[in-house]
Amino acid sequence: MIWTLPVVPPLQITYTVNPQDAWELWSSVRKDPEEENKGGEEVKENSIDIEEVMSFMQALKSHFYRHFRLDLSAGSLNQVSTALGSAKYNGRIKISNSKYMITTLTLLTECALLKMPI
């Protein structure tokens, strides 16, 4: 993640998170679909709630503050990157040309073709 803090001159912070640590943090803030289904409505297991994302981001900001005493909430998140691609604040999305991405797109294409009516 790349954050920009509004100081003179602007401070750009690159924040890298270990994938295993990010997964453990995500698992800790992820809501249990069974627990959320109190009204008897059908809940999709693969859906992500905005509150979960907000909790995840707040936990990352808190962790950064504990270690470096810089409040990322004062700035803006300009870019998020993973091994599969990146997304920027200005709306640009870049998908990598890695073997993982090609495999993922191939798998998605095959799944879509299997579900198409003939």
Rank of each mutant, 00 (worst) to 15 (best):
T82I: 08
E24R: 15
N37M: 13
L72H: 02
V17E: 11
D21Q: 13
T16S: 13
G40I: 06
E45P: 01
V29I: 10
I93R: 13
S55I: 00
M57R: 02
H67W: 12
E45R: 07
S62D: 15
R66L: 09
T14V: 10
E24T: 08
K61M: 08
Q58H: 12
D32Q: 09
M57A: 11
K61C: 03
N46E: 13
V8P: 03
L11N: 09
T82D: 06
N18C: 13
E36F: 10
L11Y: 05
K88W: 01
V43E: 04
V43D: 02
Y89M: 10
G91L: 02
L77D: 02
S55P: 01
E42S: 13
N46R: 06
T14M: 05
A59H: 03
G91W: 01
S27E: 15
F68A: 08
L72D: 01
M54D: 12
E45D: 10
L25R: 08
K88G: 05
K44H: 10
F56P: 00
R92F: 06
S47F: 04
S86T: 13
Q12H: 10
S73A: 12
S55N: 11
L60P: 02
M57P: 00
K44Q: 12
K94S: 15
G85L: 04
K38W: 08
D32V: 05
E36P: 00
V29Y: 01
Q12F: 03
N78C: 04
D49I: 07
I50S: 10
T82A: 07
D32R: 09
